[in-house]
């Protein structure tokens, strides 16, 4: 394991270059370029705002700024879903490279995570600008953004490593991930506040619901960006054990994912 980490460190520049390439290439031939990375979440915002805010009246649940509440959850969710979808297919997609050149293969999924992180950061900055413009009362916890991002990155990195390695041997993993993400989205308090679950589900179901690490991650985002205790108390459902548990799970997922990746990596070139 130590050996692998040292090797990865030696190739850090490749990781950086591949990430840069991803960022550059993504919008290279499109007219609007970077604007797209902002347009996509905005479109999602409009759809969910109309569906849940206007039609289902979720706005009424003590939400002063439902649009910003939505944004606070949609951005980290998109971050997970984009990084994971690209990461899962990364090794297979770069099969040509894997078969022809030696380099630590983990830079492939990690570089997609890197580029997704870059776009996410950009989006968060834009969101904060909007919050300031609309004079939404902010919380000092907003300064914990880098820490929270690191936590989410840890979680995504682990999943991405694990799934991308498995995907080489079973191509179903890619399709499975897609379905998983859709179901997972609705089991995470992105469009509705967590109190909606608490009030409408039996206790055992709530406990089950809270086992989802992404639920805690999204609530943390709502806490620090949207300032949920003030602007939407119904979105506030954090607990110390929930946060600690999420940190522990994320680290465990990363260790497991990295270990599995390194174990399987030797056979990639033959199998692709």
């Amino acid at each position: 394991m130590k050996e692998y980490l040292r090797r990865l460190f030696e190739y850090r520049e490749l990781l950086y270059n591949l990430t840069r390439k991803e960022v550059k290439v993504k919008y290279k031939n499109s007219f609007l370029g970077f604007v797209w990375s902002l347009v996509t979440p905005l479109m999602m915002l409009v759809v969910f705002y109309v569906a849940f805010g206007v039609i289902f009246k979720l706005r009424a649940m003590n939400m002063r700024y439902y649009a910003f509440f939505l944004m606070a959850g949609i951005l980290p969710w998109n971050y997970l879903s984009i990084a994971l979808m690209q990461g899962v297919g990364s090794v297979v997609m770069n099969g040509d490279l894997v078969k022809k050149v030696y380099f630590p293969r983990e830079v492939l999924p990690l570089s997609y995570l890197g580029s997704a992180s870059f776009h996410f950061l950009l989006q968060e900055v834009m969101l904060i600008v909007f919050l300031l413009v609309f004079r939404v009362p902010l919380s000092p916890w907003i300064l914990a953004l880098p820490l929270l991002m690191l936590l989410q990155m840890t979680f995504i990195a682990g999943l991405s490593l694990l799934l991308s390695a498995l995907n080489v041997f079973f191509r179903d993993v890619q399709h499975f991930t897609e379905i998983l993400l859709t179901a997972w989205f609705w089991m995470t308090p992105v469009v509705y506040p967590v109190s909606y679950i608490r009030e409408n589900l039996p206790a055992w179901a709530v406990r089950l619901y809270m086992l989802n690490p992404m639920a805690h991650v999204v609530m943390l985002w709502q806490r620090i960006i949207y300032n949920s205790p003030v602007n939407g108390p119904s979105a506030y459902g954090l607990s110390a054990e929930g946060i600690l548990g999420t940190v522990a799970v994320s680290v465990a997922v990363l260790v497991l994912g990295y270990y599995a990746f390194c174990r399987l990596e030797g056979r990639f070139a033959e199998f692709i």
């Binding site: 190739y11 520049e13 490749l14 270059n17 591949l18 550059k24 050149v101 380099f103």
Partner: peptide
């Protein structure tokens, strides 16, 4: 990417 950008990328792939 351009040829020049690819030089940097390819070199780092080669380690």
């Amino acid at each position: 990417l351009t040829g020049r950008e690819n030089i940097y990328l390819n070199a780092s792939i080669l380690g």
